[in-house]
Nucleic acid binder design. Structure first.
Length: 82
DNA sequence: GTTGAGCGC
């Protein structure tokens, strides 16, 4: 299950994002989108969880909750163009 | 040494 996480703190990293979602289940991959030039966070990221059940629990459990001092938005990610 | 809706190289 791919998860879209928005309104992250601009200083939040991918490891922090993964560690945060791992509280609900196994996280296979987590990544915060950074700018290619400034290398600063774009304020959103993606989390991939192998268990769809844990992923759903994480979405409903972490959506609109405080993370790293910011209220984040968690929802299912759109299918990326292969 | 900033900002805050939106979907990743």
């Amino acid at each position: 299950m791919n998860i879209f996480v928005a309104k992250l703190n601009f200083r939040t990293t991918s490891e922090q994002l993964q560690a945060h979602f791992e509280t609900y289940g196994e996280v296979s991959s987590a990544k915060v989108i950074f700018d290619k030039v400034t290398q600063r966070s774009k304020g959103f990221g993606f989390v991939e969880m192998p268990d769809d059940n844990a992923a759903q629990e994480a979405i409903e459990g972490l959506n609109e909750t405080e993370f790293d001092g910011r209220t984040i938005v968690v929802k299912k990610a759109n299918p990326r163009n292969d």
